[in-house]
Design a protein around this nucleic acid. Structure first.
Length: 428
RNA sequence: GUGGAUGUAGCUCAGUUGGUUAGAGCACUAGAUUGUGGAUCUAGGGGUCGGGGGUUCGAAUCCCCUCAUCCACCCCA
């Protein structure tokens, strides 16, 4: 009976595992370089946790089950609720600011398509407890710092940045009621993904005045902060949030990544919980889904029963990133080493196999990654194996050892070889 | 949940208007070469042609159903 892998999952054979490690190791290195510390939580949580901020529709989109005690549980589709739960629990003991990162494995019961799977990895960074938009800038910077570190340039990707706070102030200013905002965000978020007519039609269902719809339309196309006052008069709240956003860009300039960043009112994010800066990083060609997205969320911790503490963060999935890196030629299957050995011990005579195993064991004890050959004889074959295992050095046990306890140590890179006794080998 | 495309060896794919024992390249194993790696050549193993049913003397090929994959929509934390 043949059993197939589950829909939307991936098997990580060694070559794919090398790719995954390349991505995850890069994420972790960037996190550490930017001063974040790692955390993780359980892969399943109470289903209720995901209903708090997303409602009952979310149940359709995640994997949930009931345990033998009748508890309704769900495999985590995101890690932010877990983060909120964990931080809340120790909020008074944790030194501020909290700069945490994680690379959780997540599952969502969606239909797979390009850049979207049912099981994936997502890099998350969050800064909790810092009001200053400097923290928002740092989150954007850290995301870009990673993308830069793997070889992408400001010609490849762009960080589109906006502000929910500013957007809310402007919308209220043109006469849109506060309680309309929440249902409006998911529509505004679609702006760049759907035809203008469809967008206008959707807006029309939420907004009565066609003039207001047109104003919103103009507003969404704004890419320069100076243009905003031409469209909408700024009230006090709008002025403050605009200054805040300008300050984000000022910090990003200080950090040296202004070329990568652009103001874009059409970045809204569908989620209700964003309260301040929001951003997404896209490939410049715009062919792919967002590489990452995030922003400031001031109410999440309190939504999970904690105190009101401000936070800002982002998430980056591995699926879109991998597609982008391949498109840009920054990730090729043959460019990653699946295995690396310090030593491969070849053995020419069955009498010496015991010694070969012993030498390998001692090399391993010294911390050197080492393999011996299960087959003795034909050296050519063993050299091929040493090569395929990417061994830095090959030790050959043959006549020299029988005659004078000497090992042939061959440098696989240069091809040079020297004679050594076992003791001096272990010293190195 | 809706629509489109595609399923042949581990991978990438040939396979003529339906016709005998289903092929190639790469990969794998062994040998050419019993002490020297990335090359070349030779040989070998590996397939109920996604699964089931139907049409036919005969199906990888035609029809139906089903499953899976990919792509788009819905949704996107």
């Amino acid at each position: 009976m043949k059993i197939q892998p589950v829909k939307g999952t991936r098997d990580f054979y060694p070559p794919q595992m090398a790719v995954r490690n390349f991505i995850v190791d890069g994420w972790k290195a960037s996190s550490i370089r930017n001063g974040f510390v790692e955390y993780d939580g359980p892969i399943f949580e109470h289903l209720q946790m995901y209903q708090v901020k997303s409602g009952d529709e979310i149940v359709e989109q995640l994997f949930n089950f009931t345990d033998r005690g009748g508890r309704h549980l769900a495999i985590r589709p995101e890690i932010t609720p877990t983060l909120a739960r964990m931080v809340n629990k120790q909020i008074n003991a944790l030194p501020r600011p909290i700069k945490w990162f994680s690379v959780p494995r997540l599952c969502r019961a969606e239909r797979p398509q390009k850049g979207r799977l049912r099981e994936f990895f997502q890099w998350n960074i969050d800064i909790i407890g810092v009001e200053d938009v400097l923290a928002d800038a740092e989150v954007v910077y850290c995301s870009l710092d990673y993308l830069r570190s793997v070889g992408l340039t400001s010609g490849d990707v762009v960080a589109k940045i906006s502000s929910r706070r500013l957007l809310a102030a402007l919308l209220k200013n043109i006469g849109i009621a506060e309680d309309k905002l929440e249902s409006l965000y998911p529509i505004l978020d679609k702006k760049t993904r759907i035809p203008v007519e469809a967008f206008v039609e959707m807006l029309g269902k939420e907004i009565d005045s066609t003039d207001t719809v047109q104003t919103v339309l103009k507003l969404m196309d704004v890419h320069l902060v100076d243009e905003i006052p031409d469209i909408v008069k700024l009230n006090e709240e709008a002025k403050v949030s605009l200054d805040e956003l300008i300050q984000v860009f000022a910090y990003l300039r200080t950090m040296g990544v202004e070329d990568w960043c652009r103001f874009d009112m059409s970045i809204v994010r569908g989620l209700a919980y964003y309260t301040g800066m929001v951003f997404e990083i896209h490939d410049k060609a715009g062919d792919l889904r967002a590489v990452c997205g995030g922003g400031r969320y001031d109410n999440l911790l309190s939504d999970f029963g904690g105190p009101k503490v401000t936070a800002t963060g982002m998430g980056m999935g591995d699926a879109v990133l991998e597609i982008l890196l391949r498109e840009k030629g920054l990730l090729r299957d043959d460019s990653l080493d699946i295995q690396k050995l310090d030593y491969f011990v070849a053995c020419l005579d069955a009498d010496l196999l015991d010694k070969a195993v012993n030498i390998t064991a001692q090399l391993r004890e010294k911390g050197h990654a080492s393999n011996f050959s299960y087959k003795t004889g034909a050296l050519k074959k063993q050299m091929k194996v040493a090569d395929s295992m990417n061994a830095a050095k090959c030790i050959i046990l043959g006549a020299e050892f029988k005659d004078s306890k000497q090992l042939v140590v061959k440098d696989m890179q240069t091809g040079e070889q020297e004679l050594l006794d076992a003791e001096s080998l272990f010293k190195s």
